[in-house]
Design a binder for these strands. Sequence first.
DNA 1: ATACTCCTTATAGCGCACTCTAAAGCAAGT
DNA 2: ACTTGCTTTAGAGTGCGCTATAAGGAGTAT
Lengths: 123, 123
Amino acid sequence: MEKKLSIQDIAALTGLSTYTLRYYENIGLLSGIERDAKGYRVYSMEDISCIEFVIKLRDTDMPISQIKEFSDLRRQGNSTVIERKELLEVHQANVIKQMKELGDNLIKINEKINHYKKLAEQA
Amino acid sequence: MEKKLSIQDIAALTGLSTYTLRYYENIGLLSGIERDAKGYRVYSMEDISCIEFVIKLRDTDMPISQIKEFSDLRRQGNSTVIERKELLEVHQANVIKQMKELGDNLIKINEKINHYKKLAEQA
DNA sequence: ATACTCCTTATAGCGCACTCTAAAGCAAGT
DNA sequence: ACTTGCTTTAGAGTGCGCTATAAGGAGTAT
């Protein structure tokens, strides 16, 4: 008794537009999505978690080309688990670096705000 | 005895290309940059700190349109200090939010890595 | 039958932030 | 005098990640 979800449903659930959902499928970020008798896309629960993970990769600034690599590995099955792990570990390091750099820049922005506060007090 | 720096020097110092330096000036992110007798750009130390702060804003994903707003305020002088402070405070909140979201996504990526590690061990 | 609504595909267009090219000027070196 | 090497400008082109359009098909409502 699996729920069958339309592209509209998925758009509402994931926050991606229907355009983007088709685009992601076309370029190979998503695959194995069923079609009904009319040729309409039908999404499973597993598809949703797949999409949500793609969104997490994207939101941590993984380029689409690399998300595609990851998706291609997944499509190839269990033999690629180690490769997928390694790909994610590289990305993990990038995200940590990104956060550190954001933190450093945030400090500088804070300093500038404090500088302006002092200037404003003097006036 | 101020050092006078060429666009090449600034490119080397800031990591921006000479293209980007001219582009930033054209669109109003940078202003008040001197010219020598030949019409060549000559950068001051203050220009450098200005450029470096622009880079920090850019690297924290402030859109160029907003960096321009900030630069325009600066050009208007001391009367805009409070406005500049407020603009940066809004951005500060965005950066904090960004870091939080990165952290949340990082946790999910870590979970996936651990999942793959377990799968790999079983095999 | 006709209109409406949802979907499909292929392909074109957009916004952002650069990045490069073309044409020209000036100064030093050979 | 001429080449090299730096600069200038205006404007064209690039890459990414969507976003929109056009043309058409199937199912439901009137």
